[in-house]
Computed example of a mutant assay.
Amino acid sequence: MSPDLDIVFKALADPSRRRLLDVLFERNGQTLGELCGHLEMTRQAVTKHLVLLEEAQLVAVVWRGREKLHYLNPVPIHAIAERWIGKFERQRLAALADLKKALEEDDDA
């Protein structure tokens, strides 16, 4: 089942949801309580964000007894990359990214 990319873009548009995905990238399989520790918002707000991430198939859940564990699902992000970035020449984009990084490093020096 392929994800609806409109739902994925909507889910990724919110910085708190992106933070949740970053936290899951760092350590997959966290409970709601563990995820709440990374954000300054109520448990109910985190739950609402997780529901949207689940609907976008960016987060998958596994029940272990009474514990609900949340896991990052990178497939929808890969689908976006393939659709929107894949059609451009990757080498040219990589060269531009390298140039940007080099110029930013020169500014820091």
Results as ranks from 00 to 15, higher is better:
Glu67Arg: 13
Ile80Phe: 12
Phe25Met: 09
Val62Ser: 14
Ile80Lys: 10
Arg66Met: 09
Leu50Ile: 06
Gly29Leu: 05
Gln57Phe: 09
Gly65Pro: 11
Leu69Phe: 00
Met1Ile: 07
Val51Phe: 09
Leu24Phe: 05
Ile80Gln: 09
Asp22Phe: 02
Ser16Arg: 15
Thr47Arg: 14
Leu50Trp: 00
Ile7Lys: 15
Asp98Ile: 05
Ala56Pro: 13
Pro15Trp: 01
Ala56Asn: 06
Asp14Asn: 15
Ile85Ala: 14
Ala11Asp: 05
Leu5Ser: 04
His70Asn: 12
Asp107Leu: 15
Val61Asp: 05
Gly86Thr: 03
Val61Lys: 14
Asp98Tyr: 08
Ala109Phe: 15
Ala109Leu: 12
Pro15Gln: 09
Asp22Met: 01
Glu54Met: 09
Lys10Thr: 11
Val75Met: 12
Leu35Thr: 00
Leu39Asp: 04
Ala11His: 08
Ala79Cys: 08
Asp107Val: 11
Lys10Tyr: 15
Tyr71Arg: 02
Pro3Ser: 14
Leu39Gln: 01
Leu53Glu: 03
Glu82Arg: 12
Gln30Tyr: 01
Gln91Val: 01
Glu26Arg: 09
Glu105Lys: 14
Lys101Val: 05
Gln91Tyr: 01
Leu103Thr: 04
Asp98Phe: 02
Val75Leu: 14
Leu35Glu: 07
Arg90Pro: 13
Leu24Val: 03
Val75Asp: 15
Arg43Pro: 08
Met41Thr: 07
Ala95Thr: 13
Asp106Cys: 05
Tyr71His: 10
Gly33Phe: 01
Ala81Glu: 13
Glu55Leu: 10
Met41Cys: 13
Arg92Ser: 12
Gln57Cys: 11
Gln91Phe: 00
Phe25Asp: 08
Val23Glu: 01
Trp63Ala: 10
Asn28Tyr: 02
Lys101Phe: 12
Ala95Ser: 14
Asp106Phe: 10
Met41Trp: 02
Val62Leu: 11
Gln91Ala: 11
Arg17Met: 04
Gln91Lys: 13
Arg83Asp: 06
Leu12Gln: 08
Cys36Ile: 03
Glu34Pro: 04
Leu12Tyr: 10
Arg43Cys: 03
Ala56Leu: 04
Pro3Leu: 05
Pro15Ala: 06
Val75Ser: 15
Val8Asn: 02
Asp6Glu: 13
Val75Ile: 13
Arg19Ile: 02
Asp106Gly: 01
His38Ala: 08
Gln91Leu: 08
Leu12Gly: 06
Gln44Arg: 13
Ala13Tyr: 09
Val61Ile: 08
Thr31His: 02
Arg64Gln: 13
Ala109Pro: 14
Val51Glu: 10
Leu58Met: 06
Glu105Asn: 12
Leu12Trp: 11
Phe9Arg: 15
Pro76Asn: 06
Met1Gly: 15
Asp14Ser: 13
Trp63Lys: 14
Ile85Trp: 13
Trp84Asp: 14
